[in-house]
Computed example of a mutant assay.
Amino acid sequence: MIAFPNAKINIGLNVISRRRDGYHNLETVFYPVNIKDAIEVVESPELSFNASGIEIPGHANENLCLKAYERLKNDFKLPPVSIHLHKKIPIGAGLGGGSADAAFFIKLLNSKFNLNMNVETMQNYARELGADCAFFIKNQPVFAYGKGDEFEDISLTLKDFFLVLVMPPVHVSTGEAYSGVKPANPNISLRELVGEPLEEWKYLMKNDFEESVFRNHPVIRGVKAELYEAGALYASMSGSGSSVYGIFKNKIELPHLEANNQVFYEI
């Protein structure tokens, strides 16, 4: 059985306060985009995991899919499986690729082995694996708050626009991104701002990570500036990572950005 986990972008991101559990309270809008990994699960004599595509840092035993399997195995009778992950979603980019893989893997196991978990149950398992993991269970636009794992459905579609995502050859760690942020309550919640006309977003919304990340990595700031120069209605870094997306009214090609960066069109 095969699934195709997709990435997400953050539309605005406010870091509000530090939590006692080490996380931060924040608010953001998660929006699914069409950059996808592929994950295959088959029954096997023993549990195994292998990967292809983009190299995944760290030991294979630390992969969130294996952690999801072990967590579910505590509560369900699961046979051993062989997991193959083909990685295409850039890593360290603020796109939630690892979380998406784990969430889609949970949904795969639920379908393949008739575990009869509902959406809420799957979300609760996903929350144990990562702050944004539960988003990918329903995989639809939401206003996210708390540590990024509590959601309110919102009416938002970008289907009439053209999205471009640029991945510079830079890695930004989550720790680095948070170290440069001073938490504060926003004057107006993103819940309200995202309802404003998209053409106004550039004046209303921000990603709190951008200030320090742009200071440390000017190339990322330059990508955002180039997207606006090319006519983007709104451009922003996604999450705490290094990717930057632009939302355009019409289809566009950006060969000058392709020269030094990985560029995804119609995401």
Rank of each mutant, 00 (worst) to 15 (best):
I137P: 04
N116Y: 10
S173P: 01
D149K: 00
L108H: 00
R191Q: 14
K159M: 04
G146N: 07
A131Y: 01
T157W: 00
I154P: 06
S111K: 10
K138A: 14
V81H: 01
F151G: 05
S179T: 08
L108M: 15
N110H: 05
K138P: 00
P141N: 06
L115V: 12
I89H: 03
Q140H: 11
K206C: 10
P141I: 12
L129M: 11
E150P: 00
P80C: 08
L72H: 02
N185D: 12
I137V: 15
E152S: 13
A93R: 02
G94E: 11
M205C: 11
V119I: 15
L115Q: 10
G180N: 06
F151S: 07
E152Y: 11
L156A: 03
V142M: 10
K206M: 09
N187A: 05
P197G: 05
D75W: 03
E196D: 04
I188V: 15
N187E: 15
I188C: 03
P183F: 11
A131C: 04
L163Y: 00
V81T: 06
A100M: 07
I91P: 09
K182M: 00
W201I: 11
L72I: 08
S82W: 01
M122P: 04
S111L: 10
A131V: 07
P141W: 02
T157Y: 00
V194A: 08
K206S: 14
L156C: 11
A177C: 09
N118F: 08
I89V: 12
P169I: 09
A126Y: 07
N187K: 09
N118W: 07
V194N: 02
L129I: 13
L95P: 07
G195F: 10
V194W: 06
K73D: 09
W201G: 08
G146T: 11
W201Q: 06
S82C: 07
Y145E: 08
V142T: 13
P186E: 09
H84V: 13
Y125K: 03
A134D: 13
V170W: 02
Q123I: 11
K182F: 00
A177T: 06
V81S: 03
P183I: 13
G94K: 05
A177R: 02
D160Q: 10
P90R: 05
A131S: 15
I83P: 00
L95F: 10
Q140W: 00
F162Y: 14
E150T: 07
F143P: 01
L163N: 01
K147L: 07
G98M: 10
E152L: 15
S179P: 08
L115P: 13
N185H: 10
L165A: 10
N185R: 14
K88Q: 12
L163D: 00
P169R: 12
E120S: 15
V81Y: 02
V142A: 08
V170S: 05
E200H: 12
K73E: 13
S155M: 07
P183T: 12
A102E: 03
M205R: 03
M117H: 01
K206Q: 14
Y178R: 04
D160F: 05
L85Q: 05
H171S: 08
N139H: 14
G148K: 01
A134L: 13
L190V: 13
H171A: 06
E176H: 08
F105H: 05
K206L: 14
T157H: 03
F113P: 03
I83Q: 01
V81G: 04
F143T: 04
